[in-house]
């Protein structure tokens, strides 16, 4: 039976693709990091239409779980999860950096490559790969991690500073992992940062503040 994979990644911009038996049938991508929720529906609709694939034919949904900035990242994961639920397809949670690495290494499988994406706040997400294994899947030796730019450096490595995560390559990798019987990730977004919260030290004094303000 064919694997028909709907691949969704919003860890950078929004990228959606349909991959059937390892062949990319259609894809849509934008580097826009501000409009994931607006764009995602049309993109899913368009890739399915262009591929001539009915929703009910989708057997798997590949979800880029990050690393990525939280708010946008969640839109794609939520969409992937809900689509899989509705279509009765299998959800495949994956590392988004693996798709970037595969795009680079597929024509140069012996190379090393460091992959970074924007983590905002003057930081970046980083992963390091040492080529492809014999099933054509990237071998991740480090990461995903978060760092100041340039903190983790491998001197004899290629370096890809990505602004988009190609859902097409994510889907191709999903197919290879399915064929090779590889394990996918647990359903946990790769935020790599805790939520911004400060514990309360109890209520603020108001009387003192009023005096300080000389009222």
């Amino acid at each position: 039976m064919s694997n028909v994979i709907l691949s969704i990644d919003t860890s950078a911009g929004t990228s959606i693709a349909v991959v059937k038996d390892g062949t990319v049938l259609s894809s849509r991508s934008t580097p826009d990091t501000m409009r994931h929720a607006e764009i995602i529906g049309s993109f899913i609709h368009e890739v399915l239409s262009e591929a001539g694939i009915a929703s009910s034919e989708v057997t798997h949904v590949a979800a880029g779980m990050g690393p990525g900035p939280f708010t946008g990242l969640r839109v794609g994961i939520a969409a992937a999860d809900a689509f899989a639920f509705g279509a009765g397809a299998i959800l495949l949670p994956m590392n988004s950096h693996d798709a970037i690495a595969l795009e680079f290494l597929d024509t140069d499988p012996e190379n090393n490559v460091a992959v970074t994406t924007d983590a905002r706040r003057k930081e970046e997400y980083v992963s390091f790969y040492t080529g492809l294994d014999d099933q054509g899947c990237p071998i991740r030796a480090h990461g995903p991690a978060i760092q100041k730019p340039g903190e983790y450096i491998v001197t004899d490595s290629a370096y890809v500073q990505a602004t988009e995560v190609p859902a097409s390559w994510l889907g191709v990798l999903a197919e290879r992992m399915l064929v090779a019987g590889r394990a996918f990730l647990p359903f946990e977004a790769l935020y790599l940062r805790s939520p911004d919260v400060t514990m309360s030290n109890g209520p603020k004094r108001v009387v003192q503040e009023m005096r300080g303000g000389q009222k």
Partner: peptide, 23 residues
């Protein structure tokens, strides 16, 4: 809350499309 709403919006669009239902 914006970030919270977006989870629902993303999920609803995909669910509707997965079922070919209006949203």
């Amino acid at each position: 809350l914006s970030g919270a709403l977006m989870v629902g919006v993303g999920a609803a669009k995909a669910l509707a499309l997965s079922l070919d239902k209006p949203l």
